[in-house]
Write a protein that binds this DNA or RNA. Structure first.
Lengths: 211, 211
DNA sequence: GGCTTATCTCAACAAGTGTTGAGTTATGCC
DNA sequence: GGCATAACTCAACACTTGTTGAGATAAGCC
């Protein structure tokens, strides 16, 4: 029954080794930029393949499907998320500035951090997978990962959710919609203007005045 | 050369009158909801036509092109915009609450106001026309339309641009991404939490502290 | 050299897109 | 009634999309 050489000699691999080429990483980089610029629906496999100087079907062969390629692009930002979450820890009187600086800083820094986040934002509009990811990003990772020791839990969760949404709004205005007033300002000036607002959200008593 | 009856008797119309049917408005309503729910790219002429119980080519005949249909959907919210802009006028000590209430109120009220704005937001991601419209919305209409008499002009423009972006961010979190903490809270509670932050943005001195 | 496996290209499919043109039905004026 | 015009439907177009299968080339082990 068995030929003179068994097909695979007990675990030892044979033939060409996977990962020898750099194409996979090139495709991933191209996809990251495309998704960030054109969103999920606007990015096509063919365009991504062209950017990577590669045939479209190679993209499929590596990543299986467009959604899986997108998922691969999304899952490369644990560091940036941690930096934003950590900003909540520390002295209360500089809380607003720390959080504001951490958020805007990530979005202005290394494209390998900001592009997946931009892609996530753009895609959240048309793609349920991305929408869920933004939801989790704003809600859970920023709070549940740390013990949230500032106030009682549900109140601080709400405050942080609002603050995060607001900062994401600023990013949308600056990076996606490109509101002139936000684009023209440099980062430090923007932080100086925004920090008091975020500080108030995170620390102030809610206004009970009834209109 | 001329027959016994001239083709058109000098301006007086003849034959069936335009606008007799209600289909045009039905199509417009369907398009408004679709664009708000699925964005520009995600909404197809055929789906909109189906919602309106009408053939797809009738949509084209009425509105010419998909972009023009989208433009028609966008151009029906002057009242809502005015309400948001007017909130900037009034006593300074309740400024944050007024602006916050006006913004969130429009987005929670009549779908004929909120749906085009949601559609505008969703489309701003993939459609340059909509992106320009959001830009103008955040930047100009909220300020240039009124004389902006609170502070010196460019400073107040920046403050209002930031505040508007932040409030749009809250809308995105509540209506699009649907962050649980924002969705579960009722409108008044949300306003009470957000107003102090917006107030600080619009009135506070920028933090000059240098980290 | 052979053999096995991975990387990569080519051509094509099936489905869905916006859009078009011809034809049909309904409405209103003479 | 007849006639002009609008409202509306049907079928098809040209194109793009994600995805697939077969085949060619290259790399690593015997």
């Amino acid at each position: 029954m068995s030929t003179d050489h068994d097909r695979v000699s007990a675990g030892r691999p044979q033939g060409r080794r996977p990962g020898a080429s750099s194409s996979r990483q090139t495709i991933l980089d191209a996809a990251r930029s495309r998704f960030a610029r054109d969103g999920y629906a606007g990015s096509t496999i063919r365009k991504i393949a062209d950017d990577a100087a590669v045939d479209a079907s190679l993209v499929m062969q590596f990543f299986g499907t467009k959604e899986q390629l997108f998922a691969a692009v999304m899952s490369i930002t644990p560091g940036a998320l941690a930096r934003m979450a950590e900003a909540f820890d520390g002295p209360t009187d500089t809380l607003g500035e720390r959080v504001t600086r951490a958020y805007l800083g990530v979005w202005e820094g290394d494209p390998r951090d900001s592009e997946p986040l931009l892609a996530m934002l753009r895609a959240a509009i048309s793609n349920e997978q991305a929408s869920a990811q933004v939801r989790e990003f704003v809600q859970e990772r920023l709070l549940d990962a740390r013990g949230s020791r500032l106030n009682n839990d549900t109140d601080m969760t709400l405050r942080a959710g609002i603050a995060a949404s607001m900062l994401v709004g600023v990013i949308v205005g600056r990076r996606i919609v490109q509101v002139p007033a936000l684009v023209n300002e440099d980062l430090e000036a923007l932080i100086a203007r925004i920090a008091p607002g975020i500080h108030a959200i995170l620390t102030a008593q809610p206004e009970l005045r009834q209109r």
